[in-house]
Design a protein around this nucleic acid. Sequence first.
DNA 1: GTGAAAGCGCTAACAA
DNA 2: TTGTTAGCGCTTTCAC
Lengths: 345, 345
Amino acid sequence: METITIKDIARALNLSTSTVSRALRNSYEINNETKKLVLEYAEKMNYRPNPIALSLRDSKSKSIGVIIPEIANNFFSQLINGIESIAYNMGYHVVIFQSHESYEREVANTNYLVSRKVDGLLVSLSSLTRDLTHFEELLDKGMPIVFIDRVPKNIDTHKIVVDNFFGSYQATEHLIKTGRRRIAHLTSPFYLSITMERLAGYRQALEDNGIPFDESYVKYCHHGGMMLTENETAVQELLNLPEPPDAIFTASDRLTTSCMSVLIQKNVKIPEEMALVGFTNTSVAELFNPPLTTVVQPAIDMGHQATELLIRLIEHPKKPTIFETRSLQTSLIIRDSTVEKSVNA
Amino acid sequence: METITIKDIARALNLSTSTVSRALRNSYEINNETKKLVLEYAEKMNYRPNPIALSLRDSKSKSIGVIIPEIANNFFSQLINGIESIAYNMGYHVVIFQSHESYEREVANTNYLVSRKVDGLLVSLSSLTRDLTHFEELLDKGMPIVFIDRVPKNIDTHKIVVDNFFGSYQATEHLIKTGRRRIAHLTSPFYLSITMERLAGYRQALEDNGIPFDESYVKYCHHGGMMLTENETAVQELLNLPEPPDAIFTASDRLTTSCMSVLIQKNVKIPEEMALVGFTNTSVAELFNPPLTTVVQPAIDMGHQATELLIRLIEHPKKPTIFETRSLQTSLIIRDSTVEKSVNA
DNA sequence: GTGAAAGCGCTAACAA
DNA sequence: TTGTTAGCGCTTTCAC
């Protein structure tokens, strides 16, 4: 029942370790008899190669590291499922780390994964990450990295994103079409790629519909939704405006739920007094009161594509000159939280 | 910028690798001068020990493996956060694997983690796991394992659970007190520990209140909620009964949300026609329509305690004769989905 | 067709 | 106080 090694097999069969090793890898130079002998014995003793030894030797591990802000979020957990399914099929293992939206933890996780010799990295940036040297250095050393969703602008590698501009445009336009004019936007720190793109889409939709962009209707939550009080303050500030909004478009999962929570607490009627659209993959939007209109990201597909690109990078290290940035489409799922504003409202 | 090893330091400083190794570990036998020299150089060159080499040598890895059914579930993601925070402080890394409620994947994950030389395992059983030999063998070999929440009855090791009986009793009693008499129970496969305990609490509460237990009001979902059609069929069967229930008590996260979803779809009024209580840690129960009464598990604390026990087991391998089973309390959070049945209903 | 030996990075028993 | 050596499990030259 103890772990068995090549050495054990060699000893038992009176062969050298190299012969056993070759036999196990089905090398052409080994006699069929010997091969059969080894294979059968290995099978019988339930031999499993020691991946640690292989990693040490080859400096690779058949595993990929994933660094994401947090797991307790439907978008990211779906993303992980997408990643896992491809990785699993390609014979890679997946090691997941959460940055908890902290720059320091993102760096620490990165270093650890590298020292664990992961063959590549899949990353979605923490909302507090502004310095990207930890990734730039790795890329320089030849470590394959693919960024997902929250991607750095100035790093040249594969990226999988969604068309945030359009998703945002569509959501905002939907609010306008259902009769809202004072549309607020609750979002992440401005320097994140997703923030800027979503803000741009929101703004464009307003302007295309003759509504002037008003900076006081935009609230940035520095912690990306992780700090509840911050979210609540932001919503409260919107409610306190001389002309409070009649709709809020929230840019992330956490922001969406805590915004809704504050509105309910303050007895703000949704959608009559305040319409709500959220960028979120929550699986229970239809159970909400009212059912929530959402902009959904194709998280599983994003995971698939990112993982495919990463593994391709890993297995064909001949540097490709062109890196792709694939942009997938979001879908707007319309529910009751944005029902047409009635004439008497 | 390349990875630097002890050998490199030794060469640069004209020392032997063992001296460097000792200096780095601050061994008493090394001259202070030399130590300082080595430490400074190592710092300057940003030396990091190679954990792979250490694992190979010591057959341990300062990491613990976690095997859970799925990540996209608030209970488990909170559990992970609890696990991570303790592990992190104690210098351990956490490697997470999902069984997706599949026995085969649970076994595969177990084997992989073992071959990766994790120092211990934290496990919550998949709903399809009936054969436990993969864990029994490991335990025999001396691998520390702590089970959480879904624990095996016949394996002797530390376990962290909640008082499912009481949590369930309390929920059922609450339904009775708010005027329900025909209380159904939607639950996981009967052989899981949590299923049996929750069922027993439910049953006891009924009997203590003079309501006869009726087997036709209990529905088992073999896939623990992962198969949507199965959940829907179960709910539908309850609705089709000659005397359909006036309340449903659901035993897990997934079962709760899909049950609610079916009820809404079928236009069953909650709580007037059907009250609902769910065993779930969803963070958005208050946003539901109506806000959902829940039985909440102290997931983070469970993660803390399990990890503490596991690390104690890892670091003090002198077999303790007595293994603990710690039972934590759930809390019943009462919301509108179980509002008192009005007299005219 | 098979074996001996070296090396991946590190530590520890043993020598000096 | 420091160095030499062997070994963790595996593969791969290089010999035979």
